[in-house]
């Protein structure tokens, strides 16, 4: 702080608190709704403090079975989404580390061609190739499979760049020393590169886990069956039958359950999250 301006400081705190209230209110409201009965939700204004049906509603959503989208429990939806998010994050990290390793530590024909091929994928998000990609998925029989939900998302230009940048900062002397000591490429990767990359891997993992969890268009395209849905797609199916007997208290519970896991990852791994975000955009 440059000078003392008590009024200004007070104003800053006030603005921040107002900001936090606006940021948090929609989620708080949904949480309150998730602890009330459907009758209370459908008779606005709803009281703004939690109701008494927390255990009942959440228990029914997680393990109750009947009445949800095609009779699928939210616990299965959460399991699906977790599998997708983990597989996408781990897959992207492994695949891009291997690519970056090849591009930085080896000299071979077509090296730059491969590098540019990976770079160009930045310009081809799913949104610009919806139909032909869908056709490929159908031809390969990948609709409604975990492989279909995850493998096509595993290519990653940004993660490859991040690892490439990092690998380029490793001193030649270290590589030379490893080679003189008789370390082959695998040994060097496992014993030297991997331990050095730990921080980058952790930071990237947080970002990619959230990327995987929040996918929308892709799971929408490649799943038909209700028990392969991710929680977000199932949620959208629940509200799209609107007005005809939508169980709104269950919708609210599902919404809260859909956002708690990634929010926890961000809050608990905040340091890695900020690093990952800032690094991966360079």
């Amino acid at each position: 702080m440059i000078e003392r301006r008590p009024v200004g400081t007070l104003l800053a705190h006030f603005t921040l608190i107002a900001g936090i209230v606006i940021v948090a209110f929609p989620i708080y409201y949904t949480f309150v709704a998730s602890t009330r009965t459907i009758a209370e939700i459908l008779a606005p204004p709803m009281p703004l403090w939690p109701g008494p049906h927390f255990l009942e509603n959440y228990g029914q959503a997680l393990f109750g079975g009947l009445g949800r989208i095609g009779g699928v429990d939210v616990s299965l939806l959460l399991a699906n989404t977790t599998v997708v998010a983990l597989a996408v994050a781990v897959g992207k990290i492994v695949i891009s580390m291997l690519s970056a390793y090849a591009i930085v530590f080896f000299r071979f024909p077509l090296r730059m061609v491969f590098f540019w091929m990976i770079f160009i994928t930045l310009m081809l998000p799913v949104e610009v190739r919806i139909m032909p990609t869908y056709k490929v998925m159908v031809d390969l029989g990948l609709i409604d499979t975990y492989a279909g939900l995850t493998v096509p998302l595993m290519a990653s230009a940004t993660a490859t760049f991040l690892f490439r940048q990092f690998f380029l900062t490793i001193p030649d002397e270290l590589v030379e020393a490893a080679r003189i000591d008789g370390a082959g490429p695998w040994r060097f990767f496992k014993d030297i590169l991997l331990p050095l990359s730990k921080t980058n891997i952790a930071a990237l993992f947080v970002i990619l886990f959230i990327y995987g969890w929040t996918q929308y268009l892709w799971p929408l395209l490649v799943t038909n069956s209700n028990d392969m849905n991710t929680i977000i797609i199932a949620l959208r199916k629940m509200i799209s039958f609107a007005d005809a007997e939508t169980e709104w208290h269950m919708v609210m519970v599902t919404t809260i359950l859909a956002l708690v896991p990634p929010v926890l990852v961000v809050v608990l791994m905040q340091r890695w999250f900020v690093k990952g975000l800032v690094d991966s955009e360079k």
Binding site: L16, V23, I232, L235, R236, T255, A258, V266, L277
Partner: peptide, 22 residues
Amino acid sequence: RTLLIWPYAVAPAVAGMLWLFL
């Protein structure tokens, strides 16, 4: 800072639904 960064983890579709509920 902590209280302001976490909506990053909310999926866009879910963000839309939260506002729709309100």
